[in-house]
Design a protein around this nucleic acid. Structure first.
Length: 590
RNA sequence: GACACAGUAGCUCAGCUGGAUAGAGCAACGGUCUUCUAAACCGUAGGUCGUGAGUUCGAAUCUCACCUGUGUCACCA
């Protein structure tokens, strides 16, 4: 096993050979090597940048590790690309590659297995979980995420925002940003008028104390049912919300109580998920900042009256108008988000401001950006809506009002229970069963949510969500646990000198090539705010490692033992780090 | 109706800025545990990439039209 303070040990014991080590790292850029060798031949025809853009990674490994298509040269030279490829391959023979071969119109480059493996593995072992990290500081990024509504239980819908936002924060942190996670709680609005009315009519203090959220929800659903028959209830609700806004003592007291009880329950779910926040400033927090916004809009001559309401006209941008103030003078969602955006800029001076909110609100965020732009804030360009797809149940949209919800906490506890049953069956002597069951069950749910493109809609299906086989979180965790198990059994301190890490078989080579890709994977995930890129990568790496594991004996006492163990260790580092970036734990045993 | 997002194997989905034979997982069928955790591995079967044009040496990928699904479209968030 590699000791924890491995990197220090490495440098101390090998300072005499630092140059050699640096040489190993430099040669990590194999693509560059391909570009350079082509460039020396093609100087007058194509520049380096063009060549680099043309280089691709073949789909099949029998076609090499990098390939150069000769089509664009064919145009320049007016010759058949097949012929050009043949000529190029002939010229490129030499020590730099294991093989350079023309196949049809392509020149295929084969990297030497031992060279690539040892370069990648030594780099990973020396950097540990800092592999693919960037230290350059890129500034603050606020992330608006989770944002459940007070007095309503967290549903699968909130899971998406929470888990995607959390993963994005981890990914951005890895590439050098300072994420600030903001839970913009839905703790204000007319629904509190409804809730107060419902509580006063049908509720009891005892009930709320016993099971706050479920009973508050019950009142809320009941209100909507009754209000269909008795519309005057809505007027009553509006009245109570007005009281709340006017700091009426009874209304405020109830509001505070509902909020406090709700937060306690949310916290329980966040603890299960392992998610923390830097701010819980929700809608209510901006209450006293609304007038200033309305004033500012007025001053900048952006407000217009329309049908009794105050709007900002966005016709010139092909957007429907942004509603700032209702005809009764009350402010709206948009107004609060304007206040929040400005407050966040002033408080955090963000480089980017992200909103992890469902796709159905994309229009709203376009409007928000547009209004901020019209207000003269050039940083409105730094505001980004990170949308995600809808979760449905039985093909229907989830609606708190109609009582059609999937309780997040129930899903999580089901998942943990099933994970526990799995452990009892497969590994009954495992120490720490409860802890591992928790990590595996919750990991399955989180991973399931992150493995697909954010924007994909999906219909909820418990069996699907808590599956432990195939393309799942537990599969990745299991792969890592097997790797760890080997390292435990080996009881061997890995020597990370590049010359001690050379492997030549195809299975290990495929693993090493995948490990090499981690850098650009992290980069792409950060650029696209897309955790699924990491999740897919983790599955891919796990698949390749499992093939290696199934086909090559690792714990054999021969001269390559150290190299094989080093590859296992490096794989475990990257699998663990991939899972961490998704917000999933990687138990060492399961 | 307008706008947005989507349509790839029976099901759930990959397929990066266009490139060589369209890939995984589930489900089905068959094989692999005296050897490093079988939550795994190997094999078989399964596809008019919604439809039709266009751009290109080359299109699942880009453009346009159409069809289908979902969402949004002024006092909810």
């Amino acid at each position: 096993m590699v000791p924890r303070d491995f990197s220090r040990l490495f440098h101390d014991s090998r300072c005499g050979r630092v140059f050699l080590f640096i040489g190993g790292i430099k040669s990590m850029n194999f693509k560059e090597r391909v570009v350079k060798s082509l460039q020396t031949i093609l100087q007058d025809k194509l520049d380096g940048q063009t060549i680099e853009k043309l280089i691709e990674r073949p789909k099949y490994s029998h076609l090499g590790d990098y390939a150069f298509p000769a089509f664009s040269l064919a145009k320049i030279e007016k010759r058949a690309p097949q012929q050009i490829a043949l000529d190029l391959a002939k010229e490129l023979q030499g020590d730099d590659f294991a093989k350079v071969e023309a196949v049809g119109p392509y020149v295929n480059f084969f990297i030497k297995h031992d060279e690539l493996t040892s370069a990648v593995v030594s780099t990973i072992l020396s950097k540990g979980n800092q592999y693919a990290s960037q230290s350059e500081s890129k500034g603050n990024v606020t992330i608006d995420m989770s944002s459940p509504n007070i007095a309503k239980p967290m549903s699968m819908g909130h899971l998406r925002s929470t888990v995607i936002g959390n993963s994005i924060s981890l990914i951005l942190d890895k590439v050098g940003f300072d994420p600030i996670k903001i839970n913009h709680l839905g703790d204000w609005g007319t629904q509190f008028g409804k809730l107060i009315v419902a509580y006063k009519k049908w509720g009891s203090e005892d009930e709320v104390r016993q099971d706050p959220i479920n009973n508050l929800l019950k009142y809320y659903v009941e209100f909507h049912e009754e209000a269909e028959k008795h519309p005057e209830l809505d007027d009553e609700a509006r009245l109570w919300f007005k009281k709340l806004e006017d700091n009426d003592e009874e209304a405020l007291k109830l509001w505070r109580w509902f909020r406090e009880e709700s937060l306690k329950e949310f916290q329980r779910v966040y603890d299960i998920l392992g998610v923390t926040f830097d701010s819980y400033n929700g809608e209510a927090f901006y209450n006293d900042k609304m007038d200033a916004i309305v004033e500012e809009l007025k001053e900048k001559d952006l407000l217009k009256e329309s049908q009794g309401a105050q709007i900002v006209d966005l016709d010139d941008l092909d957007l429907s108008p942004a509603l700032i103030q209702k005809s009764d003078g009350a402010t709206l969602y948009m107004t609060r988000d304007l206040a929040a955006a400005i407050y966040r800029k002033n408080t955090y001076n963000f480089a980017e401001s992200l909103y992890v909110v469902g796709n159905e609100q994309s229009e709203h965020f376009k409007q928000l950006k547009a209004v901020l732009g019209k207000m003269g804030y050039d940083w409105s360009d730094d505001i980004r809506h990170i949308p995600f797809g809808l979760i449905t149940s039985g093909g229907k949209k989830l609606s708190t009002r109609k009582g059609n919800i999937i309780l997040l906490e129930e899903v999580l506890s089901d998942a943990v229970r099933l994970a526990k049953a799995q452990i009892d069956e497969k590994n009954p002597n495992l120490p720490n069963k409860e802890q591992v069951a928790h990590e595996v069950g919750v990991g399955a749910v989180i991973f399931h949510d992150l493995r697909n493109d954010r924007l994909d809609n999906f219909d909820f299906n418990l069996e699907e969500v808590v599956r432990f086989e195939g393309d799942t979180g537990p599969y990745v965790q299991y792969t890592n646990a097997r790797a760890q198990s080997i390292l435990r059994k080996a009881n061997h301190t890995v020597d990370a000198t590049p010359s001690q890490l050379e492997l030549t078989d195809d299975y290990s080579f495929e693993v090493a090539k995948e490990l090499l890709k981690f850098n650009e994977i992290v980069q792409r995930a950060a650029e696209k705010y897309e955790p699924s890129i990491i999740a897919k990568y983790a599955i891919n790496l796990a698949q390749l490692f499992n093939k290696y594991y199934a086909n090559q004996r690792i714990l054999d006492e021969d001269k390559h033992l150290n190299a094989r163990l080093a590859l296992v260790e490096a794989t475990s580092v990257v699998l663990t780090e991939s899972l961490r970036l998704l917000g999933v734990n990687a138990p060492k045993e399961m």
